[in-house]
Design a protein around this nucleic acid. Sequence first.
DNA 1: ATGGCTGATTATATCAGA
Length: 268
Amino acid sequence: MQIKITTWNINSIRLRMPLVAQFLNVHQPDILCLQETKCRDSEFPGSEIRKLGYEYLAINGQKGYHGVAILSRLPLDDVDRIAFCEKGDARHIAASFSVDGRSIRLHNFYVPAGGDEADPVKNPKFAHKISFLDEMHRLAVNEAITENDTIMVGDFNIAPFEHDVWSHKALLKVVSHTEVETQKLKLILSEGRWIDTLRQFTPLEDKLYTWWSYRAPDWAKADKGRRLDHIWTSRSLAPHLSGIEILRDARGWERPSDHVPVTLNLNF
DNA sequence: ATGGCTGATTATATCAGA
């Protein structure tokens, strides 16, 4: 059987619920992981989502900022929310689902953006991002996670490789592509023996973006994108990976998010 | 031309995003 898992930074679930409904109806993922839902759990449009066939919801929201959620057609168990950096931010949610008789653990992250200046002394937001990555490292190299069927998705807010940004040279000092961030993310990737599935299916020398700034007058023409959204899997899932899709078209929808849906297909 | 825009907030300016 085939399973589709999508991650999408929605930048307000309440504002963009019509786009979510359109996406679910057309693309029919089994699981949709959202970031930047920007609302309390009590304000989350759960009944509308259930009517679309996504009966199982795991949400971790807060007022106005951040917020993550997992929408699923498959039953979800063992929901967990890790409070990274003890800030009270809603930036993580995990749940397990079953497919082909095996239990798969799914972690959904919203890594801090990190502010403007890539200096943890001058910029507390960048210090927070670094601390978050250090805590994420401890979690993601733990054998209890890496030696089991696990998927980590989300808006990691880091474009780790040269062709994950429109210009490597122009962005080396821009938060999301600085050396300290890309090295930390690559270390998690290698020490945890994760598979970076978007790059598994796209050569490193090909440009790959999932986000385009709102500020470009013509985002498609300028095409100054970055790959900030990720889907990583444990080694154990390697034989089951069948493809990825980045829905670039979604950036051109009416009142779009600045991120587009990113999907992994698995076969069991 | 990496902020030129966008979204949330008990708002009519400020913060955050990246």
